[in-house]
Write a protein that binds this DNA or RNA. Structure first.
Lengths: 244, 244
DNA sequence: CGGGGGTTTGAGTCCGTTCAAAATACGTGG
DNA sequence: CCACGTATTTTGAACGGACTCAAACCCCCG
């Protein structure tokens, strides 16, 4: 399915299935056609970098299919996975808006198709349609808020609860509901990366996962995860007994 | 000193000593006079709230003197101190730009003077001078970057090192250099709040502080802190021996 | 069949937390 | 100016979570 939409979106941004859910939805038909003509679509293999920290920002990217990850590292080389990008998400807009070098790196998590929009093309559209700038302002404000929430969670929750929260967020994005009300999904990340998202070692995450299985909160096998009572996920924090 | 500048800034934004360092620097003389006429300046006592989470955003604020804190709390009531604001900083612009309710709360840390700019006044200035919007875009992007850095540090550093980093940042902002090259300053925060900034309990911070004193990195007494070798602060992470 | 990456498990240690109590600083009213 | 009550900070002991290091395990791929 992800395959087919990737191909159909390759034809034109007008018929892109994510158009109405992305920042580009404020563009009219002519502007969208302009975008479509000037964008470049390309496949990425799993793990392939999209851009790297410190590079100049030549343009922005738009996910068509697959998933990508935002990573950032500090001076000592410690890195953290900050965010996961799904089809319809734009990335790298910050560097372009501010004419800055990239402050984080992005890479494809699985086989993905990503469109590239050149800086001049983006600038032209921003000039033609002021609502587009407003969209990106809204977007950056939302990102900001997410980052702050993340910060508050990190300060107050233990690793187990941070992971439960992450699971909840991932489920909302990519999960499927089964007939019995339970939810399951294919995790887009390795255990190592899951651990990096909550700021823990992979060994610790491994133990947390065992614990969640013992408690009956979820079942893991490979990258597949089943959650028995997805609605009570957030209530299960610090209180596994609530599972009934 | 902070007192006098507060009073002089009370007269007009034109003569505000922070003007050239704030987002308002792109305004011309007439626009600044307009801002000056329509802003309201007011004193806050220590601990007094400036605005609270969930309130509608009626306008934005500009610190004249003193310091303020941004706090955010999650659903369970856990809070974290996200940021400290110094004279010249604007706050609360996000809610105004996006017509949203406040997503965090702000409060004065010590006796402070803060100007309030009504939403319509701000919108008028944004219309008149597009460079102002660009300034705030830059500002939000910088904030975003800081939040991400914070996230990476939280994921990889132990509490001691997080605190050393915080100390470094605070010093750069409000520290004074003594004749022997050491630096000292008056901390704007209580121990509890310092602990909240690095996501630790106040007891833990207390122990960290004792340790730093034993190691000879810094000396604390009340809210005053002396750092012996400020330049090597960041090198001291995990390696107190480097102090020589 | 033998790597090699990713993942799990185990043991030991350290760091940070919790809870409780003492010590210190601070503001207020006498 | 001092005494008092309150809030903040420090200290202590015990516990638990998370980390390190090391080894075993698994699964996919050549």
């Amino acid at each position: 399915m992800a395959r087919r939409c990737g191909e159909s979106s390759g034809v034109s941004c007008l018929s892109c299935q994510w158009r109405q859910h992305s920042e580009w939805r404020v563009l009219n038909e002519e502007e969208t056609r302009f975008l479509s003509r000037n964008r470049k679509s390309r496949e990425y293999r799993a793990g392939e970098p999209i851009f790297a920290m410190g590079e100049p920002s030549h343009g922005l990217y738009c996910m068509i299919s697959g998933t990508a990850a935002i990573r950032k590292s500090d001076a000592e080389g410690n890195t953290a996975l900050l965010r996961i990008l799904y089809p319809g998400d734009t990335l790298g807009y910050r560097g372009v808006l501010l004419e800055e070098k990239r402050r984080y790196s992005a890479e494809a998590l699985g086989p993905s198709r990503v469109c590239f929009i050149d800086k001049p093309v983006f600038k032209t559209l921003l000039d033609r349609n002021p609502a587009l700038g407003q969209q990106f302002l809204r977007r950056i404000a939302k990102d900001m808020d997410e980052a702050h929430d993340h910060l508050v969670r990190n300060a107050n929750l233990c690793n187990r609860d941070k992971f439960v929260h992450l699971l909840h967020a991932l489920m909302n994005r990519g999960g499927c509901t089964a007939t019995d009300g339970s939810r399951f999904m294919e995790l887009p990340l390795s255990r190592r990366d899951l651990a990096s998202m909550i700021g823990a070692r992979h060994e610790t995450l491994s133990r947390i996962i065992s614990r969640l299985e013992e408690e009956g909160v979820a079942r893991f096998s490979g990258r597949t995860v089943h959650v028995r009572k997805p609605h009570s996920l957030l209530q299960v924090m610090q209180h596994p007994a609530l599972l009934d």
